[in-house]
Structures are given as structure tokens and as C-alpha cells.
Nucleic acid binder design. Structure first.
Length: 266
DNA sequence: GGGTGATGCTGAG
DNA sequence: TCAGCCTCACCCC
């Protein structure tokens, strides 16, 4: 489930479980054997996330770059550690925790130059406390594509995926078809503010929940069942929670997009 | 047990 | 624009 919120969450969890520790590193599947050998037995100094990218800095100067892509997934075990599955690319072990990584798009060692280059190509990250909302506005204003496409472009804003793009546009009341450069200042500001609050909540809880508990008759956020947790994502053909109009599905930037034609009128 | 879809991204054309 | 890649959970038989 890798949008920016889960990546930052992994960074926080791994900082805690691996940071400052000597880590045993292997590649059970074999596709990262050389890299694992270079890291094995060294100390993780820092774990950092930006957008959907993770960087692990080791004390001997190596940096591990991980991008989960669509399928990538980490699993952490503290006791009763199962053997790695067939697809486990990377295993990181300390006396207290074992972390398995399967299915990443990227799991590589990179140079500081490569890391710098990568970071420079990303837009502002709503989970980065130093990110500048004006930078987001400036990047949006240069794009004539529909806003739904611009939100998935990591050069415009880093960390948004298909769930958040649909949900943020709904919460902001903006049609997915509206050209990015035609959004009003208020709409842009609201999208950024919503991105910050929604991704922070997602990072904290580990799940994407955009409805408020009382929208769906729950008292606590944690009690909201999975299929009730969103406003429009994958809800085509069902009534909008706000106005009752049927949620629509379409395509944008090669991905499915959902919206309420009445709450998000063009 | 097979088929399929999924919260991503790249590179060829 | 589109195929291809990565893995696994879930559905259906």
C-alpha cells in the first residue's frame, strides 16, 4: 500500500528498529546479493523518506535506495520469525527485529550524486515539514494537463498516489478534469493543506481514511471499516456520501480515477 | 490450483 | 501511449 504516507511510516519504524544498530543483511532471493554483502554487518545511521523513496544511510558511507513501486512491501517480525518468502529481495536483521522486503521496483546502492539528482527531480513533499506550498503552486501553474494527472506527477508533488489523488480532489471539491493551471489560488492552497493533513493522518495510522468517523456512523477513526473509509476511490456506481449522486469512474494518466460529478462539478 | 488485479514507474516507439 | 516489470492476496473453480 505504498503511497507517501506508508513510505514515511516505514522510515519512522525502521529508524526505530534498525537505526544505530549493526544489521545483518542478506538477499534470500539472490537479486540483491552483491549489495547485501556490502551492507552486511554495518551500522544503519539514518533512514530518510521523500515522496515514495526511502534512503538508508550506513556508517561506512553506503546508501540503500528503495522504491516499493506498486507491489513492494516490507514486513517486520520481532519473534517467531518465519523463513523469507520466495520473493524476498532483502532481509535486514538485528537481535530485536527482522525486516523483509519483497517486490520493490528499486532496491539499489546509490552514490551521493545519484541521491541528490533523484531528490532534485521531486516536487515538494507534504510530509516534509520544510516543504514550501508556494513551490507546489508554482509547479501546478506550469501544467496544462488535468489536475488529476498533475497530482500523480511526482515532479509536481511528491508522495501522492491513486487513492489520495481521488480523495483529495473530492475533499477540495475540484473536478479531476480541470486543467492544473486553471485552479484558483484558494483551490491550490486547499489541496496542499488537505494533502498535508491527510498524509499525516495516514502516516500515523498506517491506513488511508479520508472520511470522518461521524460521516459513517463510527465514533473513532480506528473503528471505520475498510470499505467505508473513503469517499470516492473504487466507489463507482454507489451514491456519494455527501450528496447521493452516483460516483463516476474514468481514466487519467493511465490510471482509474473516481469522482462525484455533482460535488466536483466541472 | 489458475487467473487477476493492485495505493508505480520507465522506456521504447 | 502502451507494454513490461515486480509479488502476493484474493477470488473462483
Amino acid at each position: 500500500m505504498p503511497e507517501g504516507h506508508s513510505i514515511h511510516r516505514y522510515a519512522r519504524l525502521h529508524r526505530k528498529s534498525l537505526g544505530g544498530q549493526t544489521v545483518g543483511v542478506t538477499s534470500p532471493q539472490g537479486r540483491f546479493s552483491d549489495g547485501a554483502a556490502r551492507l552486511d554487518g554495518n551500522v544503519v545511521e539514518k533512514v530518510d523518506a521523500i515522496g515514495k523513496h526511502l534512503f538508508y544511510r550506513w556508517d561506512h558511507g553506503a546508501t540503500l535506495h528503495v522504491h516499493l513501486g506498486l507491489f513492494g512491501r516490507f514486513r517486520t517480525f520481532r519473534q517467531e520469525i518465519p523463513p523469507p518468502t520466495r520473493g524476498t529481495r532483502l532481509a535486514m536483521e538485528t537481535p530485536d527485529a527482522t525486516v523483509y522486503l519483497a517486490g520493490p521496483t528499486i532496491c539499489n546502492l546509490i552514490t551521493p550524486e545519484e541521491e541528490e539528482d533523484l531528490r532534485s527531480r521531486l516536487g515538494p513533499d507534504p510530509l516534509d515539514r520544510k516543504a514550501d506550498p508556494n513551490d507546489f503552486a508554482a509547479r501546478l501553474s506550469k501544467r496544462r494537463i488535468p489536475i488529476s494527472g498533475a497530482l500523480l506527477d511526482q515532479k509536481v508533488i511528491a508522495g501522492i498516489g491513486n487513492v489520495y489523488r481521488a480523495e483529495l480532489l473530492f475533499l477540495a471539491g475540484v473536478s479531476p478534469h480541470k486543467p492544473a493551471n486553471e485552479l484558483t489560488g484558494d483551490e491550490v492552497e486547499q489541496l496542499w493543506t488537505l494533502a498535508v493533513s491527510q498524509l499525516r493522518a495516514g502516516e500515523k495510522s498506517g491506513r488511508i481514511v479520508t472520511v470522518a468517523p461521524n460521516d459513517v456512523g463510527a465514533t473513532k477513526r480506528s473503528e471505520i471499516p475498510r470499505r467505508e473509509s473513503l469517499f470516492v476511490y473504487k466507489r463507482d456506481g454507489t451514491p456519494c456520501r455527501t450528496c447521493g449522486t452516483n460516483v463516476r469512474i474514468g481514466e487519467s494518466a493511465n490510471r482509474k480515477v473516481w469522482w462525484c460529478p455533482s460535488c466536483q462539478a466541472a
